[in-house]
């Protein structure tokens, strides 16, 4: 069960947030914030599991420009590392597509139907 996807700028500003449920949103945002610390020390790429809290496992990916993508699933989900990795790579690739939209200037907030579509399909995969 997928919980949320967050995209956070290098300097810590939230650029995008998608939560699986409105009632959990506040908790999700809090977890994304907590995950930022775990991101700091990491380099580019698949950062793996960043933290587990309130039965939610948060995974992360740091893009080439230091943008942080957080992807969280229910911690009781049986998750194969390669599936998580794949999801993170897909989200990274989709984010890089957003940054290639000439009408998008980083670090604007992300309002992309394409990106939303990818997030939706990743979230659906885990549900």
């Amino acid at each position: 069960m997928a919980e949320f996807v967050a995209v956070i700028s290098k300097s810590g500003e939230p650029l995008y947030f998608h939560s699986s449920s409105d009632t959990k949103r506040v908790r999700h945002e809090f977890l994304a914030l907590m995950a930022l610390d775990a991101f700091e020390a990491r380099d580019y790429g698949d950062c793996g599991l960043l933290l587990v809290h309130s039965n939610i496992a948060v995974y992360g990916f740091k893009t080439h420009t230091g943008v942080k993508i957080a992807f969280a699933i229910d911690a009781s989900t049986i998750a194969s590392p390669s599936d998580v990795s794949k999801s993170l790579k897909i989200l990274n690739r989709a984010y890089s597509g957003v940054s290639c939209n000439p009408f998008y200037v980083p670090p604007d907030k992300i309002h992309s139907a394409k990106f939303q579509g990818v997030v939706d399909s990743v979230m659906n995969y885990w549900n």
């Binding site: 597509g97 957003v98 009408f103 998008y104 992309s112 139907a113």
Partner: peptide, 15 residues
Amino acid sequence: LYIDDNPLADFVELP
């Protein structure tokens, strides 16, 4: 001319 897969339009989402 009907263009499928316009290479210039890759990534583009209009404002």
